[in-house]
Deep mutational scan, measured.
Amino acid sequence: MPSETPQAEVGPTGCPHRSGPHSAKGSLEKGSPEDKEAKEPLWIRPDAPSRCTWQLGRPASESPHHHTAPAKSPKILPDILKKIGDTPMVRINKIGKKFGLKCELLAKCEFFNAGGSVKDRISLRMIEDAERDGTLKPGDTIIEPTSGNTGIGLALAAAVRGYRCIIVMPEKMSSEKVDVLRALGAEIVRTPTNARFDSPESHVGVAWRLKNEIPNSHILDQYRNASNPLAHYDTTADEILQQCDGKLDMLVASVGTGGTITGIARKLKEKCPGCRIIGVDPEGSILAEPEELNQTEQTTYEVEGIGYDFIPTVLDRTVVDKWFKSNDEEAFTFARMLIAQEGLLCGGSAGSTVAVAVKAAQELQEGQRCVVILPDSVRNYMTKFLSDRWMLQKGFLKEEDLTEKKPWWWHLRVQELGLSAPLTVLPTITCGHTIEILREKGFDQAPVVDEAGVILGMVTLGNMLSSLLAGKVQPSDQVGKVIYKQFKQIRLTDTLGRLSHILEMDHFALVV
């Protein structure tokens, strides 16, 4: 994948999101292997301009796509893939009243899908469409860049269908997702969380590099694949309309690839034109409109599966009536509230959605109805927002919020430890010299600072030695090549209790 991002070429006709291997024109390309080798690009942008032909009021008969309808489940399912879809609609009884809503608040519980998330729908649909058009064949390999849930859905379907599955996901995604993927037989590649989507090191860039190296491999490409919004247009939206008897006044959905909100909203605009569509985008993402909503100094966020630093091709923002931004604290607070007060075992993005819903639905009156999409299960986040310690460490809970008995030293300040200034190293000294210094002084790690004293990161003896043994660096290389740029900081005025929580999850903390 090139470091400079080429513009994806656009073909003359058809839909841009065809499933299957992508040609340089962004659509299915038939021909000899030699032709494909000559024409197939190194990668295709996940934010390529959409060429979708959908228009409100256009006859369904003019759609270029294969459409399906929700099917009634048999008493005995032939395999677990038949437990994807037909998820329950559940009334939220307490939270709406707590925040003064007059309307009825309903939750579409997508964590009841077989793999635990709304992404099971698009995973199965992308595979079925690729099999139907002859792209996927027995023994082929599926590769997908994902925040985890699409990966789980694909790995689940691949396990049943017999495909090899490789999932490329950023490091910030939970260990629970990784464990589930491994249990399903998927191979996992992790990428830096802070890598831009168009960087060769991003999950998108690495996935395309693997595709170019592995024979008979395919990126189904949830960011561009029409099967993504079509899955929701054909099934999720129809289920909502049936469950609500066609009567709903507002739908609120958090947005990642945009397939969920695009597919549902398009069908609702056709069948229930008075329904307002509300999009939820986390602070630090750029999906919301108008652009002024996205202006923030924050560039990272903890909530998973929603928000991006690019506009995915499948996201149709014209069908969203209003956007709201959400933050991590309210997302996790509301997710825990949904679990504790409503018994809905949902993930953090569901918290984002409901946090926005109780604001947006203030305009609705008694007798009206708001539906929220709860995308995934708490299963993926047992060591994250479900953990009091994690919430404390991230600053989303305060010590006084917890009532468990603490040891005698818990409320003492870090400054009472009488710490001395640490050994520091410059980023320009060599790895070999740094190892000598650390061994001589008896230290395992040291902060790396520039000549102005600005902290650049941390270097550890173990990481340097393993990097040297693996051949990633040489003793003569500058130590700046092996620094940890993500590390926890703590102030002298913070409590030892807070430091204790940090050290339970990290090997060190830097006192500043």
Rank of each mutant, 00 (worst) to 15 (best):
T5H: 06
E9M: 03
T13C: 04
P16V: 01
R18F: 08
H22E: 12
G26F: 12
E29W: 14
G31I: 02
E34I: 03
E34D: 12
K36M: 12
E37G: 11
K39D: 15
E40W: 11
P46R: 01
S50Y: 07
T53I: 06
L56R: 15
L56T: 11
L56S: 10
L56H: 09
P59E: 10
S63G: 08
H67C: 10
H67K: 10
T68C: 11
K72W: 03
K72G: 10
K75A: 15
I76Q: 03
I80E: 05
G85M: 01
T87Q: 04
T87F: 01
P88C: 08
R91C: 01
I92P: 04
K94D: 02
K97Q: 12
E104W: 01
L106K: 08
L106T: 09
D120R: 02
D120P: 05
D120T: 05
R121N: 01
R121L: 00
S123M: 01
L124Y: 11
M126S: 01
E144G: 04
T146K: 09
T150A: 02
L154E: 02
L154A: 03
L154G: 01
L156I: 07
A157Q: 06
A159I: 03
V160W: 07
C165R: 00
I167P: 07
I167G: 07
M173R: 06
S175L: 07
E176R: 02
D179C: 14
D179G: 10
V180L: 10
V180P: 03
E187L: 06
I188N: 04
T191L: 02
P192R: 12
R196I: 10
E201I: 03
H203N: 11
H203T: 09
G205S: 11
H218Y: 10
Q222S: 02
Y223Q: 01
Y223N: 00
R224Y: 01
N225G: 01
N225R: 01
S227N: 14
N228P: 00
L230M: 15
Y233N: 08
Y233P: 00
T235Y: 14
D238H: 09
Q242Y: 12
Q242A: 05
Q242R: 12
C244Y: 01
D249T: 06
M250R: 02
S254P: 15
G258N: 02
T262E: 01
A265I: 07
L268S: 00
K271T: 14
K271A: 11
C272G: 08
C275N: 02
